[in-house]
């Protein structure tokens, strides 16, 4: 028993040093040396391409409705909203889904509200435009969801539909190796491309 205890303590400490500290430090060293941009969060001038943002104006393409309509942040009610990787616009939050079940009345009502919102803006929504993601900050939408938003963005920006179609087409990322997962459009990169294309573009 005492021998077991002594060996257990020794192994626990040795494992903490090797698999807790050294593993993480060596991993971080290799990661920072080989892929510094990825290892630090793929962060560019306007944010991380891996973290969705809340696009408030109709002059931008919108991502998944993690943080708008019924899911918008509301500091008064203490709701942090989606698109919140720790703090967003001063409101603390964390990653996570709504977890509404497939026969939830709340989900029916929320989705109805989102569909109405899209219709008001002249958009025939696809399913990923009316459903929230698993992470709560899905940075991507499907190509069909980007094309669907052309009427809304064209009206707000004055950029012609054909130009928008061209911008989207250039941003479509096919499934990895052609078959892993689904094709996507990164919303931040799409909007950056849109900003560049606008007259006097930033």
């Amino acid at each position: 028993m005492l021998l077991h205890l002594r060996r257990s303590l020794v192994l626990a400490v040795a494992c903490f040093v090797v698999f807790g500290l050294l593993y993480a430090l060596a991993g971080t060293g290799v990661a920072q040396a080989l892929f510094p941009s990825q290892a630090n969060g793929s962060i560019g001038a306007n944010g991380s391409t891996l973290i969705g943002q809340n696009w408030t104006s109709t002059r931008w393409f919108h991502g998944r409705p993690d943080d708008f309509g019924p899911y918008a942040a509301d500091p008064k009610k203490g709701i942090s909203g989606g698109d919140n990787p720790l703090v967003a616009n001063g409101i603390p939050g964390e990653s996570g889904a709504t977890n509404l079940g497939p026969r939830s009345r709340t989900l029916v009502a929320d989705t109805r509200q989102l569909i109405r919102w899209w219709h008001q803006h002249g958009v025939n929504p696809t399913s990923d435009l009316v459903t929230t993601s698993a992470s709560g900050y899905d940075p991507d939408i499907s190509p069909a969801s980007a094309y669907a938003q052309i009427p809304m963005v064209a009206k707000s920006t004055g950029v012609t539909a054909s130009t928008l179609r061209r911008i989207i087409a250039a941003q479509v990322r096919p499934a990895e190796l052609g078959f892993l997962g689904s094709p996507t459009v990164n919303v931040l990169q799409l909007n950056e491309a849109l900003a560049r294309a606008e007259p006097g573009g930033r």
Partner: peptide, 23 residues
């Protein structure tokens, strides 16, 4: 995948006006 010990990152999107602190 992220691998750093540097703590959260703070970003400001000039297009959109949002700020985020990223874990």
């Amino acid at each position: 995948g992220v691998q750093t010990l540097a703590g959260p990152a703070h970003i400001r999107d000039a297009l959109n006006g949002v700020t985020q602190t990223i874990a």
